[in-house]
Design a protein around this nucleic acid. Sequence first.
DNA 1: CTGTTAGCGCATTCAA
DNA 2: TTGAATGCGCTAACAG
Lengths: 358, 358
Amino acid sequence: MTIAPVSPKYAWGVSIRMSKETKPTLHDVGALAGVAARTVSRVVNGETGVSVKTREKVDKAIEALKFRPNLAARALRSDRSFLVAILNNNPSPHYVADVVRGVSRVCRETGNFLTLEEFTPADNNIAESIAELVDSIRLAGAILIPPLTDDAAILDLLEAHEIPMVRMSPASDAARTDAVFARDGDGVRQLVNHLYQLGHRRFAIVGGPSSHRSSRIRMAAFTGALTALGISPATVIIEQGDYTYDSGAEATRRILSLPHKMRPSIICAANDEMAAGVISVLGASGIAVPGEIAVTGFDDSEIARLIWPPLTTIRQSIVEQAEAAARLLLDRSSVKDGPRRIEQEVELVIRKSTSRDI
Amino acid sequence: MTIAPVSPKYAWGVSIRMSKETKPTLHDVGALAGVAARTVSRVVNGETGVSVKTREKVDKAIEALKFRPNLAARALRSDRSFLVAILNNNPSPHYVADVVRGVSRVCRETGNFLTLEEFTPADNNIAESIAELVDSIRLAGAILIPPLTDDAAILDLLEAHEIPMVRMSPASDAARTDAVFARDGDGVRQLVNHLYQLGHRRFAIVGGPSSHRSSRIRMAAFTGALTALGISPATVIIEQGDYTYDSGAEATRRILSLPHKMRPSIICAANDEMAAGVISVLGASGIAVPGEIAVTGFDDSEIARLIWPPLTTIRQSIVEQAEAAARLLLDRSSVKDGPRRIEQEVELVIRKSTSRDI
DNA sequence: CTGTTAGCGCATTCAA
DNA sequence: TTGAATGCGCTAACAG
């Protein structure tokens, strides 16, 4: 057998790896299987047009060499990476962690990797950082989390680069891209009906910032559901918060400063974090929860379970929404039919903050 | 001027980009600046041996073309990516979010990108997933978060691939790699001294899992500090938890079942999450906090501020630790001197859960 | 069904 | 101080 002048690695004519340091390539696999690199490439990428016999040989060689395609080479040659980016400037750790968990799972299933572009709400050069990323490598796609979902400059940027994207719960221009939503309105209706059955008639609502789609929807659903039960919105105390703990506490102080006969029997916050603020002020004021005033949240974030009393709330599985978003992102088969939209069910979770027996 | 038969892009002899779709390359920049690609490469990588004049021309061309080096090509050619991986199976969203925030900041400063390998504690094929990553691309480095920091199989894997790594608060084999720690012991001593000054003499401690370095250190510091104040460890109630909310609640039930005269005036939990469990059980039992029993946590995680009463605790800035870890990881200048070690200061945060005036 | 050739964009010889 | 040539590992064209 003549010596094939290919490269030192192949100096013995067959695929004998000289060193543990050298990672096997398509070429190595091909040499071992007795086929060309191109054929191995076909097998690796699941292309059609390879005989079963050949495929088996190649698979065996891949296995034997523990071959793994080089990401950089693939990305360079085919101008498509296997990187899915999560773009985030949402400061809530629970929310982000759940998104990461869901996307991560799907990435692993599909042989992709996850990159995280993390910003604080104060960052003002978000678009620039993202530009750096998308100019440096062709992303498999991007998942956008609120409130960054509604940043027109970033949407423009991604569109200009033709990066596939899915937005989670976008507030504006919802039909512009693929998107995933939760059925917030359904949740509010379930919650209100439950409270009504418990006998509550004097409601206070602490709304979220009107800039968020979710808070507008939740507020509309609250007033709608109450009206449907014969409770006039005019009799409902409505306070405005901004989804933070402190704003929930502040709203509660305002509520407690009202004439005593107007005091509600139930305070519904538009998210759990504000509800935690509500409970802390009630506790500090010596008001029994739920005995004197009951409290509800929304989201079923971790804190709903950790505070005392634990919160009755609406669970929306962010993990599942994120999984759905990632699958949508990676499935390009139906994009041509226009923006796609997934709506996720929610669920009422009843805990002690509305219990009758405390 | 003759037509240079280089590629369609250069068909006009000078660097005129034919289409917005085509990203500029080193070659384009060089053509515009009137130098070879090799020279541009030198400038981009900050190599020496380029005249000031040339460098200026090149910089101008880079600016004009908004050139950004192609990550994939760089990674392929030089077998080094600009990807920093965070390896995590810690379920605490606050903690992970802080790590991400710190690492993210440093990555952005240094032109790197961040990839997140996220696992649940239940995942049993962590090593396999990480192998897939490190076999696919040469990472710039990896940052390991507990409890994954102490997984020998993963350390072996990364070492075998010669991936630079920094571990955060490793429990075992601490000198094996670069590492970042917090001065937990200092924090405990500050805390105990403060409680002693408030008049507390009957202590209960809810420890963390002995598998964690942090809980062993914290427990040793508690008994040490108490002893130093003349309080015999034999008179201290010690319960074992596992850092979860539920284990804190459970430990508290055991404490409350003790004869009344043994009841402590203060329960110190080894982390905030267990402290939240402690407070919930005390609340459910009608015991005033801090009036009858005070409570402290450790970590100053978000929940410390969100529960009622808010927790006196020890703040360790995870963001800063993560930043330090990332800088350590990316600075390879001093690795040859053996494993490096950074210790981060902590700080006592006094809140209502130990206040005297409630 | 399979192989040959070429080149993605960059960094690294080596030569000038 | 600069440039020409080469190839990293892979996949797209194009043959056979």
